[in-house]
Computed example of a mutant assay.
Amino acid sequence: MQNQYDPRTTNSSGFGPAVSVGVPRAARDAGLRSYMLKVYNYMASGIALTGIVAMLFANSGMAAQVFQGGGILPWIIILSPLAIVFAMSFGGQRMSTATLGTLFWAFAGLMGLSMSTIFLVYTGTSIAQTFFAVTAAFLGLSLYGYTTKKDLSGWGTFLIMGVVGLLVAMLLNAFVFKSGAMAMAISAIGVLIFAGLTAYDTQKIKSIYSIVAGNADAMQRAVIMGALSLYLDFINMFQFLLSFMGNRE
């Protein structure tokens, strides 16, 4: 995300000068809670859309036809969400909030098409168990990121480097090593990395409020981008944990 959304750009009190002077603390706290609730609602709605699309696409039989049939279409479905994330991350400031919101919902829907394959590989019971386990973990980690007084900004570089290393390891294992043990290790490390990112991103999203408070357009952008960050943390943690502990069909 942009540097202005980095928690280190705010003062130590957690509120920028635009809102820390002349604004009662109770009003600031109420505004922050409302802002965070919008982020969580947006994120949860995106996950719900992804789940519904994935289930319907798998149950219709179309997922099996598309992903087992080969060709270019599966790659388009898999890579389209990534393209949207890059567009939102690097071009979001030039987009209207309506466009940014539309891209978020398009991303969530395409992720549903992409993730429909889990219903072809894993049992419904293990998918449900993993989902509820990740939901409980996500809530606890996000609550920690929201309430802790500890500055988590130092985690950012380490965790992003971990994500890059994880991607490299996944590619090497997919095309070179093809090791089941390595895949399990990658999944376990992936769960830990995105668990840390959940707490880190929550604190960062919270800190953004001090910058965007009072600017409706900037706040809506922050809500959408914050929801995207938490969505990615949740979905990645879910996928890694499912591959680690899910029972196959």
Rank of each mutant, 00 (worst) to 15 (best):
G165C: 05
G22K: 07
G101K: 08
S179E: 01
E249D: 04
S34L: 08
Q239A: 12
F104W: 12
F177Q: 02
G190I: 04
T202I: 02
M225N: 11
S20A: 13
V66Y: 01
M182I: 14
A213T: 03
S13F: 10
V19Y: 03
F238G: 04
T202H: 03
Y146Q: 11
F86H: 09
Q93M: 12
G14H: 04
V212F: 11
I76S: 02
S34C: 04
G226Y: 07
M219E: 15
G145T: 04
L56V: 14
G51L: 13
A63N: 04
I84S: 02
G91K: 09
V66M: 02
T123K: 02
I186F: 03
S13D: 14
F90N: 09
A218Q: 12
A185W: 05
I127A: 04
R248N: 00
A48F: 08
T148R: 06
A30Q: 14
V21H: 12
Q65T: 13
L103Y: 11
A83R: 05
A26W: 01
A58G: 10
S229G: 08
S34I: 01
S89E: 15
N236D: 05
A18E: 14
T9F: 14
G156S: 13
Y231E: 10
G92S: 09
N11M: 02
D233V: 06
G180I: 00
T117H: 05
M245Q: 15
I211P: 00
M225R: 12
S89C: 00
G124T: 03
S142E: 14
G154T: 07
A44S: 14
F132H: 11
V121Y: 03
S89D: 14
V168F: 15
L143C: 06
L73C: 01
L79F: 15
V212L: 07
G156N: 12
F234Y: 15
L166A: 09
L79T: 10
F131C: 04
A227M: 06
L167T: 11
N173A: 05
L110Y: 11
G70M: 06
V164L: 14
Y35W: 11
K178A: 03
L192G: 06
A58Y: 02
G124M: 07
A98C: 00
G70N: 05
A222V: 01
A27C: 01
S114I: 03
S207Y: 13
P17H: 11
N59A: 15
M1E: 13
S34M: 07
I189T: 12
D201K: 11
A137Q: 06
L159K: 02
V66I: 15
S114W: 08
A106P: 00
D201I: 01
M161C: 13
I193S: 04
Q2L: 05
Q65K: 13
M88Y: 01
M88Q: 15
S96Q: 07
S179D: 09
A87K: 08
F175K: 04
P81S: 03
R8P: 00
R8F: 08
G140H: 02
L110S: 07
Y122T: 00
D233F: 08
S20F: 00
F90E: 11
I72E: 00
L241A: 14
S229P: 00
D233N: 15
G31C: 01
G154K: 09
K149G: 14
V21C: 01
M111T: 10
V39S: 07
M111K: 10
G61L: 02
V19I: 15
